[in-house]
Structure formats: C-alpha cells, structure tokens
Amino acid sequence: MSESRIRVVLAKLGLDGHDRGIKVVARILRDAGMEVIYLGLRQTTDSIIAAAEQEDADAIGLSMHNAGHLTLAPSMLHALKDAEMDVPLVIGGIIPTQDVDELLSAGVSGVIGPGASAEEVVDIVRTAVAAVARSSESGPEAG
C-alpha cells in the first residue's frame, strides 16, 4: 500500500523565509495520504535534486513569496533537465494570475495560488504526478 503513495519533496528555494504557506500545504498533502519530505528553508537547486533522487520523489513542490518565481522556477526546471529527471514541479505562493501561463508554458506542472482550497492543492499535485506518469515510457506508476 505504501508503495503507491505519492511522495512529494517540498522546499523553499533561495533566501525567502516565508514558510507559513508551505507548512500548511505539507499538512494538507499529508492528510490526503501523501508522503511529504519537507527540506526546509534556503535550499538550492542542487540540494533539492539530491533529495528528490534520494527520496524517489513523484513531485517537487517549491514555495515562493518574494516575486522570485519568474527567476527561480526556470532555474529549477533547468536543473531538473540537466539532471535528466522527469519529476513534475509544482510552484506555490504569491503568484499573480498574469504569471501563471508563463510558468506553465516554461514547464511548471501546476501552480498553487493564494486562497487555494485544500481540495485544489491536492488536485494540482495529483494531476501533475499523473501527467508525468502517463507520459513516461515505463507506464503508469504511482497515483
């Protein structure tokens, strides 16, 4: 049973210390039956990739509250590509609606904006994981 649980690595990338949102999201995902690995503050793309590999993560969730999302999300995607990791990236935090399309078209799998309900949070992560699982050649995995 635990083999099929979605494993999510959550982290704060960069200097931004606003962690209220990511901690709430961590508990929401945990309550929905997912395995949550929270790395904490001041992570780098390298530390996140290392943890995602080690934890065999099904998704990575990063929280951004400092208007850094248009810089940091692409740098994370770039790092994932370099590491040849096909793990969906979900971005949460203070993301203006006008930036959501840009993030999605850059390759972000889902965006959790301000005021998202618990159901929306869980849905966004499940959908992101399912989309990658469908597209991978090894067939469906978790989720």
């Binding site: 960069g14 200097l15 400092n66 208007a67 850094g68 810089t71 940091l72």
Partner: peptide, 21 residues
C-alpha cells in the same frame, strides 16, 4: 532580501532578489 540576510548583491543567493523588496 539579500541585504536582510547579510548577503552581497553579487552572491549567487541574490539572483533575482536585488532591489526587489
């Protein structure tokens, strides 16, 4: 944010944060 954290604008940590907030 870099100033608040004692980092210079040239720090790799400062990327995208200089003069923002």
């Amino acid at each position: 944010m870099p100033t608040l954290m004692g980092r210079d604008s040239s720090s790799p940590w400062a990327l995208g944060e200089v003069g923002r907030a």
